[in-house]
Design a protein around this nucleic acid. Sequence first.
DNA 1: CGCTAAACGGAGACATCGCCCCGTATGTCG
DNA 2: CGACATACGGGGCGATGTCTCCGTTTAGCG
Lengths: 211, 211
Amino acid sequence: MQADNRPLRADARRNRQRILEAARQAFAAEGRAVSLDEIARRAHVGPGTLYRHFPTKEALFEAIIQERLRSLIEQARAARTAADPAEALFTTIDATVADAQAKAELIDALTGAGIDVQSTVAAMTAEFRQEMARLLTRAQEHGTVRRDVGIAEVMALLGGVILALRGRPALPGMNPERALSVLRDGLRSPASAPATFEPGVHQPSPGQEAG
Amino acid sequence: MQADNRPLRADARRNRQRILEAARQAFAAEGRAVSLDEIARRAHVGPGTLYRHFPTKEALFEAIIQERLRSLIEQARAARTAADPAEALFTTIDATVADAQAKAELIDALTGAGIDVQSTVAAMTAEFRQEMARLLTRAQEHGTVRRDVGIAEVMALLGGVILALRGRPALPGMNPERALSVLRDGLRSPASAPATFEPGVHQPSPGQEAG
DNA sequence: CGCTAAACGGAGACATCGCCCCGTATGTCG
DNA sequence: CGACATACGGGGCGATGTCTCCGTTTAGCG
């Protein structure tokens, strides 16, 4: 473990990138459950090399998860200044779900499935949570979101939808948008609710694009 | 493996009950993740004894989960004839959440976390799902629940709430009832919604609604 | 081109878990 | 009370997964 500022050797840096890329794919597909050997194999490096770069599995996981979380936090932060506070909250929720749907490791991170993350990940999830709380409060002050729910309930429901979308073997005919629309309408303040509900056809909401 | 109808020996039956009781507690506390040795230890029997009674982990898990699922299915079936279809659905959802909150193994069963349950459990969860679908359809025909959601979405959200309630390290200040009330209001048909939302705490601010 | 140190990578130590075997203890019945 | 079958239980096997050691390769540089 060298602490000096000497740059990594060319092959070392190349292998490190390979490992990260393989880990990205592996974690996205399987979540935290993939074995390090599997990642090493996909990266065409030996397990020893993997260990050299990331002393523990946590370290590798953190490296991957941090970029995802940072992206989400930034999205949430950007939404803070949006014109419509409720839409800002809902859009961020949508984005989170959409992201996590393709990135299983996010699920593990957000739900703490890896058990004891005593690490940076915990801090970043806390930060994300705080950012979401800000969006929620703003929407509540605006009167478009019911005031009797806290960030804990919102995060629980959000995490729930995410978890439900994944991992399940079956759930045939499951439509993420519809599930989210239920969450949306449930969160809306009764007075101010035109609701996303459409009697005839369900109108798909725009995917993930931040403001 | 004796197929004859000879009754089990006294100590055998006693140990079987001990194992079941220990497994109940262990699965309820930790879900499917607990090791057989741990269960055997808690039951004050050897691993060999455990294996004698339940040849695989699945077998033991099934034995425990079946009683839980049967109870839930019966509740759902009983609710089928209730006067208010929407309340019948919501009450059953509440009951399921309440049950699962204290029984982690139910979560694993309902969400299929144990991966491949090629077994009775799968059949029973399917049955439960079907029963829920019946409640949902009835509530929709009654006009009190929005028609653009299917059983898949409801089960996903339900499972999500359950999962969110558990497993998380923190989630401070989380209130299951409030989370469920969001789900409830989200499921309600817009026209027929007095909602569980209580205007007492809510101070309607003259906000501009979303476009 | 040749030397040095950094990096590689495979074999394996170590732990865990599900599952199994067999010597021993004990309940059951004549 | 004695004999036999039944059940106990601990040690152990094989598989899997994380992490480590060390002989070999290769990049970097004069």
